[in-house]
Structures are given as C-alpha cells and as structure tokens.
Amino acid sequence: TGEEYIAVGDSTAQQVGDLTFKKGEILLVIEKKPDGWWIAKDAKGNEGLVPRTYLEPYS
C-alpha cells in the first residue's frame, strides 16, 4: 500500500536502485525518506528511488 503520485517530469535512473519514469506516469510511493528521495513502484511493478521534486499528489 502507499500513496499515488503523478510524475511532473521525466527522470532517468542515475545509479542502481533508481527508478526511471516518464512525465504523466502514476507512481505508488511506498516510503518517504527525509533526504528527498522516495521509494516508489510503477505500474509494471518496478521499484526504486525517485526524486520527490518530480512528483505531485494524484487525485
């Protein structure tokens, strides 16, 4: 379980453990880390770190 967020920009994984996503994708945020990198899952079930500045709450 988690909260749904929509990507407001494209982000390409810079290192192992990062999640690549495109603008408009809905991501499920699993954990919000205080350093600004959140753990999220995409629609295909891929999981990784995403920069919170690229996400907005999805409603």
Rank of each mutant, 00 (worst) to 15 (best):
G17F: 06
T20S: 13
I30V: 08
V50S: 01
S59V: 13
E31D: 10
R52D: 10
P51K: 13
P34Q: 10
A40R: 01
G45S: 03
T20E: 09
L19C: 03
N46L: 07
K22H: 08
G2T: 08
G36P: 03
Q14I: 13
E4Y: 15
V29R: 00
I39N: 04
T1Y: 14
T20V: 12
E47C: 14
W38L: 04
A7Y: 09
G48Q: 02
K22N: 07
Y54I: 13
G24F: 04
F21V: 06
S59L: 12
I30L: 12
K33E: 03
P51T: 06
T12A: 11
E4W: 15
D18W: 15
L49P: 06
I6T: 04
E4N: 09
S11M: 14
K22P: 01
G45D: 04
T53V: 11
W37S: 08
V50P: 02
I6P: 01
N46P: 00
D10Y: 05
D35G: 14
T1N: 12
G9H: 15
E47Y: 14
Y54N: 07
Y5S: 00
I26P: 02
G45M: 03
V50H: 02
Q15M: 11
T20G: 08
L49M: 10
D18Y: 15
I6D: 01
A40T: 03
K23T: 08
Y54Q: 13
V8K: 10
Q15L: 10
P51Y: 15
K44F: 14
F21G: 00
E25G: 03
L27E: 00
V29L: 04
E3A: 08
E47V: 15
R52M: 15
I6L: 07
T1E: 13
I30M: 09
W38Y: 06
K22V: 08
E25L: 02
F21E: 00
E31S: 11
I39M: 10
E56W: 08
E4G: 05
D10W: 05
E4H: 14
E3C: 14
E31I: 10
K41R: 15
V50M: 03
L27N: 00
F21D: 00
S11N: 12
K41C: 07
I6Y: 06
D18L: 15
I39A: 04
K23M: 08
F21M: 03
E3Q: 12
S59P: 11
K44E: 10
A13F: 10
V16F: 13
N46H: 08
D42S: 05
A7H: 02
T53G: 12
L19G: 00
A13R: 15
V16E: 12
G17V: 05
W38N: 00
Q14D: 10
G17H: 06
E25V: 04
V29T: 01
W37N: 09
I26M: 06
L28A: 04
E47K: 11
G48Y: 05
D42E: 01
K32R: 07
V50G: 01
L28V: 10
D18G: 15
G48W: 05
G2Y: 14
D35T: 07
L28E: 05
P34F: 09
S11L: 15
A43K: 11
V29Q: 00
D10C: 08
W37D: 05
P34E: 11
A40P: 00
T12H: 12
E56G: 04
L28C: 10
G45P: 00
Y58N: 06
P51W: 15
A7S: 05
Q15W: 11
T1V: 13
L28I: 12
S11P: 04
V8G: 04
A43N: 10
L19K: 01
G45A: 03
N46W: 04
D10K: 04
W38H: 02
K32W: 04
P51C: 15
W38Q: 00
P57T: 05
L27T: 00
E56D: 05
G2S: 09
P57Y: 06
Q15E: 10
V29C: 02
P57S: 06
L55T: 01
G45H: 03
S11F: 15
L27C: 03
G36D: 05
K41W: 06
S59Y: 12
W38E: 00
E56Y: 08
T12M: 12
S11Q: 12
P34D: 12
E47F: 14
V8S: 06
